[in-house]
Amino acid sequence: MAAETTARVVLTTTDSAEDAERLARVLVDAHLAACVQISGPVRSVFRWEGAVSVEAEWQLWLKTDAARVDDLSARLVDEHTYDVPEVLVLPVVGGHGPYLAWVTEETEPAELDQ
Rank of each mutant, 00 (worst) to 15 (best):
residue 91 P to N: 03
residue 95 G to K: 03
residue 99 Y to Q: 02
residue 63 K to V: 04
residue 74 A to C: 09
residue 24 A to H: 00
residue 93 V to L: 15
residue 47 R to P: 06
residue 90 L to S: 09
residue 51 A to E: 15
residue 107 T to Y: 02
residue 10 V to G: 01
residue 108 E to V: 12
residue 68 R to L: 05
residue 75 R to W: 03
residue 91 P to L: 06
residue 62 L to S: 02
residue 113 D to V: 12
residue 32 L to Q: 02
residue 67 A to K: 08
residue 26 V to M: 13
residue 74 A to Y: 06
residue 86 E to L: 12
residue 91 P to M: 07
residue 90 L to R: 05
residue 52 V to M: 09
residue 63 K to Q: 04
residue 11 L to K: 08
residue 20 A to K: 00
residue 85 P to W: 03
residue 37 Q to L: 14
residue 21 E to M: 13
residue 73 S to P: 07
residue 47 R to L: 09
residue 82 Y to K: 07
residue 17 A to F: 09
residue 24 A to C: 04
residue 99 Y to C: 04
residue 36 V to I: 09
residue 53 S to E: 15
residue 96 H to K: 10
residue 39 S to T: 12
residue 89 V to G: 13
residue 73 S to D: 10
residue 88 L to F: 10
residue 42 V to D: 08
residue 21 E to D: 14
residue 86 E to G: 07
residue 58 W to L: 05
residue 84 V to Q: 08
residue 109 P to H: 00
residue 22 R to G: 01
residue 13 T to V: 03
residue 101 A to F: 11
residue 77 V to K: 09
residue 108 E to M: 14
residue 57 E to H: 08
residue 90 L to M: 11
residue 76 L to F: 01
residue 73 S to M: 11
residue 10 V to E: 02
residue 57 E to C: 09
residue 108 E to I: 09
residue 85 P to K: 03
residue 92 V to Y: 03
residue 16 S to G: 13
residue 45 V to Y: 15
residue 102 W to N: 02
residue 8 R to E: 04
residue 39 S to V: 12
residue 8 R to P: 01
residue 33 A to K: 01
